[in-house]
Nucleic acid binder design. Sequence first.
DNA 1: TTTAATTGACCGGCGGGTCGGTCAAAAATA
DNA 2: TATTTTTGACCGACCCGCCGGTCAATTAAA
Lengths: 201, 201
Amino acid sequence: MSPKVVDKSEKKNHILKAAIRVFAESGLANTKMAHVAQAAGIGKGTIYEYFKSKDELFWMAFEVFVEEMGVLIERKLIDVEDPVEQIRVYIMAWSEMLNSEFREFANLMIEIWAESMRKGQDKGLAAMTEMYYQYRLQIKSILDQGVLQKKFRPMNTLAVAAMIIGSMDGLFLQWLMDKDLFPIEEALKEFADIVITGLSE
Amino acid sequence: MSPKVVDKSEKKNHILKAAIRVFAESGLANTKMAHVAQAAGIGKGTIYEYFKSKDELFWMAFEVFVEEMGVLIERKLIDVEDPVEQIRVYIMAWSEMLNSEFREFANLMIEIWAESMRKGQDKGLAAMTEMYYQYRLQIKSILDQGVLQKKFRPMNTLAVAAMIIGSMDGLFLQWLMDKDLFPIEEALKEFADIVITGLSE
DNA sequence: TTTAATTGACCGGCGGGTCGGTCAAAAATA
DNA sequence: TATTTTTGACCGACCCGCCGGTCAATTAAA
């Protein structure tokens, strides 16, 4: 019925996008391959032409998600010079992100969190840990710059970086749970103000 | 083999405790009733004398968890008067908690998060939202006091409360993922300092 | 002995993954 | 160009192991 696709990698990507949506909605265990197939508009068997297993599909979805997220943040930071402003931009970038096309992928994050922590899921956990480690270093280097420029007080920059990332995740999580009532914009704004005031010399 | 338990509710509690441990380790979908039974040292069928279904068991485990957690925090706050110190105690209470018997239950939290957000899990989500709403109000009232006493600057206290709770969750989450390397003590301490400095008049 | 509690073998459905068949399109041939 | 052959992407019926929940039998308590 549908014409055959010539470009393998494009179709793989198409399946991945559908999978992200379904995983985000139902989680790993509750997602049926048949459902993913339906969402992608293909037969179940076809998925296995592109992915070895459900598990592989899930973790590839994670990779795509992380990568797109990283690119998005990077782009926002690119033409901000002042470390203080960089921190603010970084924090506020989240609220924009949550109103972008990422909104539908957001639920996936918690699935990944849960999944990566289960006993025996060392591969996923390692990927996760690595991702956060990179984020922390990124923030740390902004903070270090700020301290050097005497715009921030001296501090344990790694711990503060960890705190900032952690807090972002937490606010994100709260918003996920209660998208309508949780005041994410205000909470982020307050957070940015408090962090900057609290860190200033 | 196991001593016969006379008290029905005591046995129910015993099963619940075992279930919490198993759910924390494997999640809802990956936990087998046989495994819970084994962990509790009883036969699988017996569980169904005390709980209607796996689902009911899971959500009762959640209730127990939340309740014990609330009691623990409450106890810490009871003889602190100064709002500023209350905030600090509240924040630092977490690090103590994570070194207490709660440590083994901690993973359960993320399972609950993930589960409560799945499509169709309205019951769980509602319970979750309610819990956080209560927490937010609790913190808000401390902040309101502080503002009244001119110890904190004027602010959107609800948003700040949401921010604080969210951040706590986020730090907790990060720690869950990387218990050995994530500097939870320092991050919490920095967070408390920054928040208090940032909120002070 | 009667009643209550406990148990684990068993059942049924469910879903991940397989595999032989199909067919559109590309390649080869005329 | 028209026709035949080959390819491999696509599919979904089927297989089979797994696990939540049941219940007849067993054990303990009254």
